[in-house]
């Protein structure tokens, strides 16, 4: 059981990602991390995985629309979204099959319950054995809870991802946190996807999967595709 990111050049260079891997994705604002996260999730759907997305900045509906916009055949029954936004905006939306509402990004207990419920549903009722969890983003969660609290939460869930042979992707906003935060959290992850600004735009690379980091690549995002150059 292995996973692919759906970012072609990187996948070629790092090979199959083994199950139970937890990856941190870090990069500056407006580098289209949301799209890249969704693209990785979308690759999961193409590979018949179940996908659980914890969304802290975009309402769950918007996330679902992204998939429906770029893929008219998207298998929505394999998508589960934990929406930490809608309720904090004061909307009394209730849960749907695809979207479960958490009360707020503070409510890590509640977020944890919703993630677990999706995992159980996909595992037991749909008999899916491959799952991706994307948390987008840890930075929002860190705005509301201190580092230690978030560390404990991640300790539990990166562990669960290992146990379930799943793939975990955790997004961090570069420049929003001090060095200690990043160093502390890094311990929990097996590898990183790094993004940096360049003269042309932005560049991406993968670290920790191969003895040396992959080279930096310029990239362009186009729907569910990401095209690497260089």
């Amino acid at each position: 059981m292995t996973y692919k990111l759906g970012i072609s050049r990187l996948d070629e260079l790092i090979g199959d990602i083994k199950s139970g891997t937890n990856i941190m994705m870090i990069g500056p604002p407006i580098s289209r991390k949301d799209d890249i996260t969704n693209i990785i999730a979308h690759q999961g759907l193409l590979d018949a995985n179940a996908v659980v997305i914890v969304s802290t900045r975009e309402p769950g509906n918007n996330v679902l629309e992204w998939f429906e916009r770029y893929d008219s055949d998207v298998p929505v029954d394999r998508i589960g979204i934990v929406d930490c936004v809608t309720r904090t905006l004061g909307f009394g939306a209730s849960d749907t099959d695809n979207i479960k509402m958490a009360s707020s990004p503070v409510d890590l207990t509640g977020i944890g319950v919703k993630i677990s419920q999706f995992l159980e549903h996909f595992w037991m009722e749909m008999q899916l054995r491959e799952t991706r969890l994307c948390i987008n983003s840890l930075s929002t969660i860190l705005m509301y809870s201190n580092l230690q609290t978030v560390f404990r939460f991640l300790h539990v869930f990166t562990g669960r991802m290992k146990a379930a042979n799943a793939l975990g992707i955790y997004v961090i906003e570069e420049g929003m946190h001090d060095e200690k935060t990043i160093v502390t959290l890094k311990q929990l992850f097996d590898g990183m996807i790094e993004i940096r600004g360049s003269e042309e735009g932005y560049q991406i690379r993968a670290v920790g999967f191969t003895p040396k980091p992959t080279p930096w690549f310029d990239y362009e995002v186009d729907g569910t595709n990401i095209v690497l150059r260089g």
């Binding site: 207990t109 944890g112 319950v113 993630i115 677990s116 939460f153 539990v156």
Partner: peptide, 9 residues
């Protein structure tokens, strides 16, 4: 005393 991920609340 609830384990994380279980509906304790």
């Amino acid at each position: 005393y609830a384990h994380p991920g279980v509906e304790g609340a």
